[in-house]
C-alpha cells in the first residue's frame, strides 16, 4: 500500500487499514479453509509448496477489502502449480513446457462484502450502503464486512465499533451479501474462462487433456 494508491498512504508505515486488511483476508481465505493445504504437500512432513499472495493497490477509491479479496481469489483460481513426481528419494519438478501445470484445489470461493452505515434516517431506519467510494468511507459512521461463498456459508463476519445497529439490519445485510456473492462468483468464473480460451486459441484439446478435473 503505497502513496500511488492514495496520498494518505505513507511509505513504510503500516496503518490500521493495513492490519485490518491482512487480518480479514487471512480470516476469510485461510481460516475458512478455502485452499486445501494438504494438496500443497509434496513429501509428508518434509517438503511442501509455499504460496504467497502479494497485493498492490494502484488506486484507492474505497472498498479496498472487497477488491483485495476478489483479486486474491481470482489469482488463486488462475494460478497453476507445476507437476511434481516423487519416486523414492527423488523429487522432480516438471517444467511447464514438459507437463501441463495443475490448478490449486480451491474448495470454495469466499468473497468479502462490505457495508457502510450512515446512522438512522428520520424514520429510524438504518442507512446502509454497499461498495462505498473513498468519499463515502470517509463520512461513514460504521462498517461491517461479511465473507460469504456462493453456497450461502458465512465464513467470517467483522464489525468493530462504529454506530450501533439492530440485529435485524445486520441479518438483512448478510442475506444481501449472500445474494451479491453469487453474482460476483459468476463474474470471476467468466473472467477465468475467457482467459483460458484466449490463452489456448485453437489448442483446446490439449488443454482438456492437461486439466486435472474432467467430466467424470
Amino acid at each position: 500500500m503505497g502513496p500511488m494508491a492514495s496520498p494518505s498512504f505513507e511509505v513504510g508505515r503500516p496503518t490500521d487499514l493495513d492490519h485490518t486488511l491482512s487480518r480479514l483476508l487471512e480470516k476469510s481465505i485461510r481460516r475458512s479453509t478455502a485452499l486445501d493445504l494438504e494438496s500443497l504437500c509434496i513429501v509428508t512432513a518434509q517438503r511442501v509448496w509455499s504460496l504467497r499472495a502479494d497485493l498492490h493497490f494502484l488506486s484507492h477509491d474505497g472498498n479496498l477489502i472487497d477488491t483485495a479479496c476478489i483479486a486474491t481469489i481470482t489469482a488463486l483460481a488462475h494460478f497453476r502449480l507445476p507437476v511434481v513426481t516423487v519416486s523414492g528419494e527423488d523429487i522432480t519438478i516438471h517444467p511447464v513446457t514438459e507437463r501441463v501445470p495443475v490448478p490449486l484445489s480451491l474448495l470454495h470461493w469466499p468473497i468479502c462484502v462490505t457495508f457502510s452505515f450512515f446512522g438512522e434516517d428520520d424514520d429510524g431506519e438504518m442507512v446502509c450502503v454497499l461498495d462505498a467510494t473513498a468519499q463515502e468511507e470517509a463520512l461513514r459512521e460504521g462498517d461491517m464486512t461479511v465473507t460469504v461463498n456462493k453456497n450461502g456459508e458465512v465464513c467470517q463476519i467483522s464489525k468493530s465499533g462504529g454506530v450501533a445497529v439492530e440485529a435485524e439490519t445486520l441479518m438483512k445485510c448478510a442475506r444481501m451479501a449472500a445474494q451479491k456473492v453469487k453474482g460476483i462468483d459468476k463474474l470471476i468464473a467468466a473472467a477465468l474462462r475467457e482467459d483460458e480460451v484466449a490463452r489456448n486459441k485453437g489448442n483446446l484439446d490439449w488443454l482438456k487433456e492437461g486439466r486435472s478435473e474432467n467430466e467424470r
Binding site: G152, V154, K159, A167, L170, A178
Partner: peptide
C-alpha cells in the same frame, strides 16, 4: 439494553440460516 449491536465478530464457517439464532 437497546439490543443494538456495536461489535460482531465471527471467524468460523456457518450456514447463513444459523446466523440469526446465534446472534439472538
Amino acid at each position: 439494553d437497546s439490543e443494538k449491536i456495536v461489535a460482531l465478530s465471527m471467524e468460523n464457517k456457518v450456514r447463513i440460516e444459523m446466523l440469526e439464532g446465534m446472534i439472538a
